[in-house]
């Protein structure tokens, strides 16, 4: 464990909690892409199948449980509890264009051709593009609530910090995982546009609005 990875995990956990609280407190999921949250639930499910078979540490197991439980809770709130506030007309990204290519790629490029390893690889590839429906929805509505932009910023920063974690681990642990690094780079690049808007607007107290 190193500071970048720890801060990354904290940032990721913060994003998940921010979203849960935003929906629960405001009793509304307006502006939130249910499709992205569905994809995140798939990402955690396919990545943590070894939750009960491969114990690494208490921290690792407890964080995995929190991630899986909160992602399912978020999906449940969007598609069931507060589905009346779900803005389906603006959440129109074709997720099959994300799931199919990443599934095919996980069969072609992986560390080991075994079910668990292919599912782990699929989850890494899917995570790198899972935010696209949400970013697409923000660009379609032309704006995002400030709390939603804080959620997106925390979520984007988590994988950016993981990039520094991989530099650290390559330097000091001779560890590198090209699949995770390349997917992490793609994931971070997808946030660049949003990071620019967040830093130039939201941090100056303005509302996040995209040129429609």
């Amino acid at each position: 464990m190193n500071i970048f990875r720890f801060l990354g995990d904290i940032s990721h956990l913060s994003a998940i909690i921010i979203l849960l609280l935003k929906i629960w407190k405001s009793r509304s999921c307006a502006g939130i892409s249910g499709k992205s949250q569905l994809l995140f639930a798939i990402v955690f499910t396919t990545r943590y199948l070894d939750l009960f078979t491969n114990f690494i540490s208490f921290y690792n197991t407890s964080m995995k449980v929190v991630y899986v439980a909160s992602s399912y809770a978020t999906v449940w709130m969007i598609y069931s509890k507060f589905k009346a506030t779900y803005d389906g007309n603006h959440d129109t990204f074709r997720v099959e264009f994300l799931i199919v290519p990443t599934a095919i790629l996980s069969f072609l490029v992986n560390h080991d051709f075994t079910p668990l390893e292919i599912l782990w690889t699929f989850s890494i590839y899917l995570e790198s593009v899972a935010i696209l429906p949400q970013l697409f929805m923000v660009s379609k509505t032309g704006e995002a609530e400030t709390i939603t932009s804080h959620y997106l910023f925390a979520l984007g920063i988590y994988r950016t910090l993981y990039l520094f974690n991989w530099i650290w681990r390559y330097q000091f642990e001779e560890f590198f995982d090209l699949i995770a690094i390349v997917a992490g780079l793609v994931q971070t690049v997808l946030y660049c546009d949003f990071f620019y808007l967040y830093i130039t607007k939201v941090l100056k107290g303005k509302k996040l609005s995209l040129p429609a």
């Binding site: 990721h12 070894d50 690792n60 995995k64 992986n110 560390h111 080991d112 995982d177």
Partner: peptide, 10 residues
């Protein structure tokens, strides 16, 4: 290079 199955990151 990481060995398959020993993914210790979240």
């Amino acid at each position: 290079e990481v060995l398959p199955g020993d993914h210790d990151e979240l």
